[in-house]
Design a protein around this nucleic acid. Sequence first.
DNA 1: ATTAGGG
DNA 2: CCCTAAT
Length: 711
Amino acid sequence: MVLHKRLDYGFNGYQVPAIPRATRSARKRVPFRKRVDDQISAFDLLATVAGKFLLDKESTPASSNKLSAEDQSAVGKNTVKVERRDGDRSLKLETCKQDSTDRELLVSELVLQTNDPNYSSRKSQSIQNDAHFGFASVISTSDCSERVDAQKLMNGKIKNEMGSLSCKVETGSFVCGTAGDFIKPESEIKGLIDEELDRADKVSIVELADTCPLEDPVVVDGKPPALVSSDSSGKSCSCGDHNPLSSFPAKRDDVNVVSRDDDEKSSGCTHPSPIKKSFRPTPRIGDRRIRKILSSKYWKVAPKLKDVTYSNSDENLKSAYCDRHLRYERNYPFKKRKFLHCSSVSNSDGGISSEGISYSPEKRINGNASSVYSKKHGVTGESSSLADQHKSHSRDSHVKLRIKSFRVPELFIEIPESATVGSLKRTVMEAVTAILGGGLRVGVLLQGKKVRDDNKTLLQMGISCDNQMDALGFSLEPNPSRNSPSLCPGGSPIMLPCDTPLPLARYPATSGLGNQVNCDASPEPHMPILGNFVESDHDSAPSPTDMSFDKGATDSKALVAVPAMTMKAQAVVPAHRKSKYSEVVQRRIRRPFSVAEVETLVQAVEILGTGRWRDVKLRAFDNVKHRTYVDLKDKWKTLVHTARISPQQRRGEPMPQELLDRVLSAHAYWSQQQAKQQLKPHQQQPESCLLVYNSEIRDSSRSDFGQKNLG
DNA sequence: ATTAGGG
DNA sequence: CCCTAAT
C-alpha cells in the first residue's frame, strides 16, 4: 500500500560472475542420442555459449578438479609449459589457465616414451616396441555436462586404442584435426601454445586438443589390446578382481581415456568397485586428496608419472593407478550421493563445488571403465560409429569464442524503508535470479544482424576462425518459451561489437512498477520487485522480448556478451554441446501465493475436494498459467501444514487465520470423505458433498477476485 | 495427463 | 518447487 514510502533502488548493471543457478539442476535426464555433426551449427554455438554462461556460476576458484597434482601449480598462473626431454623422449605440453573470472583449462599432454625400465614392468613386458606412445591427454573442458560428448570422445579414443595403427594415427586427434595436424613440428606446437597463452587470458569457452607428438609418431601396438592382463601380480586396477577393468592397465600406457560419463546407469561396471569408493570425495577436496595420495605414496613408485600431466585428475589418476597396479583402497568411504546430473550447462570445471552440479569422480571413472569394458568385450554398441563420426568431425576447423562476463541489466528494487538489510539482499538476489533464472536464450548477431536460422553452420554464416569474428555478437535474453517473467517492454536488443568492453544493456525503467500495489506492509518485501513479476493474467501474451527478437539487430534488451576473435590456433573445443542446452531447465521462479490466491484455492477445494486438483485448477486458476495443478496441490499441502503450526512458526505473507481455519476444516472434511469413499466406493458422488459447504460458498463460479489478482 | 507424496 | 511413482 504505501508505495510512497518505498525506496527505489536502481541498479545500473549488476555484475555477476554467473547466473545464479537453480538449486536444482535440470529436471530430467533426457536420454538422447547425440548426433555428431560434421559442422557446428549455429544452434551448437548457441548451446555452447549459453551453457558456458549458465555455468560460470559454478566456477569458483576452488574448482580445481581438473588439475592434477602437478598441474596445480600452474593454475592461476596462466602458464604454458613446453618441456622437451630428450632423455626419456617425452614431450610435455601444457597450457593451464584459470582465474576467478573465467575458468579455462587447457591441458594437452603427450608423452613419448621409450622403454623405460622404470616405467612399468608390465608394460615393457606386454609391449615390446622400442618406443610407443604414452599418450595422455586430458580434456578439461569446463563443461561437465558434456558427458555425452565425452563419452564419444572416449569411445573414439578407445577405438583408437583398439584399432589398428593407421586408424590410431588418423583419429587420434579427433579434436584438433586430421592426421596432418596431428603431427607437427614441436616448434609449431609451441607456437600454438603460445598463442593459446596469449589468448587464454579470459576465455570462457575452451577446448582442448589432443595434440599428438610429433617426432616419433610411432605406433605402438598394432593389435588390439587383448583382454589378457599382463599383470602378473594378478591384481587388477582398482575395479576389483572381477571387474572387467582388470585388464585395463594393459592399455593405459597407450591411451588414456578420458571419460566424463558420470552416468552410473550406463556403466557396464556394476560392481561396487573400490574405485568408486575411493573416488567419492567431496568435489572440492577430491583432487586434493588424490593428489596427496599420489604424491605421497604412489608417486615414488611411479617415477614416470611425473611426465604426465593430469589435468582431469580423476581419469588420469585412475589410469595412472592402473598402470601402476595400484589399488584404490576404500579409505574414503564417502557416502554415495545421488548425482544430480548436471544441467546441460553446468559443467564447468569439474570441480564445481555445487553439489548438484559437480560430477563425481567415481562416476566418471566408472563410466570410463565401463566404456573400456564394453569395448573390450565387443559390447561396443555405437562406439565405433561414434569414433567414426569423430573422425570426420575432427576435420572441422573450430571457432573459438571468447565471451567476457555478462551483466545483469539495470534492476529496480522496491522495498520498504523498514526492511532490513538482509531482506534487501534477498530482494536483490531474487531480482537477479528472476532475470537470470527465468530462462535465457542466446541470440547470435552477425554484423549486426540477428542470425535466426539455428541450423546454419557457422561456416555458412561466415563465422570462421579467421574472419568476421569481430562482427559476431551475442545477446542473452529472457527465454520467451519459458514462462519466465516477461521483462519490461520497450527495450531493444543491443548488439555489441566485439571487443566493446561489455557495454551494458539495461532494462528500461519499468513504468508499471508503481502499479503493483501490494496490500500488505509485511516486512518481507516479496515478489513484485521487478516489473517482471508484475504479471497479469495474460501470461500467454508474447513477451516483448519475443517480438523484439524478430526485429533485428538492435533490439536486445538483455544481457550482452562479447565474443573473442583471435582464433588462429586450430586447437579447438568441442563446441557441439548441442542438445545440452535444450536440457537446461531452470527451476521456476518462486511465486508465493498471495492471500487472494489462497482464498481462491481454499474456496475451490472446499467445493471440489482435495483430490481433484485438475478441476481446481480449471475452476479457479484456469487462466493463471504459472499455477499448475501440482502447484495448487502443493500449496494446499503447505497450507494444511501452515494451519497446523503456530503462527509464530509461519513465514512469509501472513495468512488470515480465518482462511487457515477453512483450510483445516475443508481438509478434515475431505479426508473423511476420502476415507469413506474407500470403504464404499460406489457411494455418493463428490458433488453431493457440496452441500456441506454450500452455506459458505458465495460464489461457486470462478472468483473474480482471484482472476484479477492471482497473476 | 493426473494424483499423491517425499524431498 | 522439484521429482517420482503410480495411476
